[in-house]
Design a protein around this nucleic acid. Structure first.
Lengths: 209, 209
DNA sequence: GTCTATATAATGATAGAC
DNA sequence: GTCTATCATTATATAGAC
């Protein structure tokens, strides 16, 4: 059962569990981490952990909620404001999400697998993704109307959005593999190589730097 | 210890283990599958499984080797032939890799996580990736010389390759989440939206369809 | 809320008979 | 090569004291 803290010391315990779990998941991956490990790292007893969370999956879901919430904040605000985002600003925000991805590194690596084995998590993810895709889609259509990007058909817009999304979600974890240190600039460059050719010269702000 | 089969009946057992493991990994994910499950599905005793493989990781590595080998075959042949690949042919091959990704679906979902927790696997992956990137890079430079694509600088070429790679590796697993059935054509479209704008009109074969 | 203690079950892995 | 039998270990989850 998902328990809500009632005192401030309790909140501290609950958060300590989440912090400990995040650390361990990032270090060793969720598969290699048990509830006992998390309790030990958090400095509490295994029994106490079960007072706050029913199992490991619930901890993972809670961590995902934290990630998703932070991500949504990046795109909250008046709908009008969001629709005023320029291509350059979009790339900046997508790449900025990398900082978040780095904090929740285990999600970058494992999310697809976790979604496959936890239907509850999959439902949460689908909701976030749908909202985000709708926003980006509307934004891209607006750019098209305003002559900011080449006149793609709706399918083309959807594909472009999806391509950017895939890269934004994956480049960090994939880049870590190559050994070389991974900079946020790398992600932005990768996104730009996809988006840039669709920008019409007159309005383009993304090439200026 | 990685044991090599000496008789044909043994090969059958060894392969049955690999087949059973692949099925289970694809269904439930590697984390939820134990050596006992694999043995049961393969119709052998747990003890027998340990005669052939030292642990689950070794089975995973062997499956990855099968995947990587099949992938490499797609790009084997005379270096000259590979260098004659057109952009349209490249997209076709990349998307064709989707069939392979589908057969080894668990790798599409979990590879990044598995690489993080198994250094041996990570080393194998790095080798494959390096070869593949070198091939694609050489191919793209050749296109540039031949006037098939826009005159990108070397960094631009590397970025373009990486963007295509990321999409080719991820679109299938990510697409499965959206619920709608995933077609190979979707992957090719996604790749095309990235590559197409870099093709110079005169030589372009990728837009014709 | 938090701990200790413990029940129950599953897992990884081995030894030895066939 | 393959099986049965088995063991030490570890994991999850709960009960009850504080």
């Amino acid at each position: 059962m998902l328990r809500t803290p009632t005192t401030s010391s309790a909140r501290r315990t609950r958060d300590r569990i989440l912090d400990a779990a995040l650390e361990l998941f990032n270090e060793r991956g969720t598969a290699a981490v048990t509830t006992n490990h998390v309790a030990a790292r958090a400095g509490i007893s295994p029994g106490n952990l079960y007072y706050w969370f029913s199992d490991k999956d619930e901890i993972i879901r809670e961590l995902y909620a934290g990630f998703a919430g932070a991500y949504e904040e990046m795109w909250s605000g008046d709908e009008a404001d969001v629709m005023d985002v320029t291509p350059a600003e979009l790339l900046r925000r997508l790449a900025a999400g990398a900082a978040l991805s780095h904090r929740y590194a285990f999600l970058s690596r494992e999310l697809l697998g976790l979604l496959h084995s936890d239907p509850v998590l999959a439902a949460e993810y689908a909701a976030v993704r749908e909202r985000r895709t709708a926003t980006f889609d509307a934004l891209a259509r607006r750019w098209r109307s305003a002559g900011v990007i080449r006149p793609l058909d709706d399918q083309g817009i959807a594909d472009l959005i999806q391509a950017l999304w895939v890269i934004a979600e994956t480049w960090l974890a994939l880049g870590e593999l190559s050994g070389t240190s991974v900079e946020s600039a790398d992600g932005e460059r990768l996104l730009r190589v996809v988006l840039e050719p669709y920008l019409l010269p007159a309005r383009s702000e993304v090439t200026s730097r």
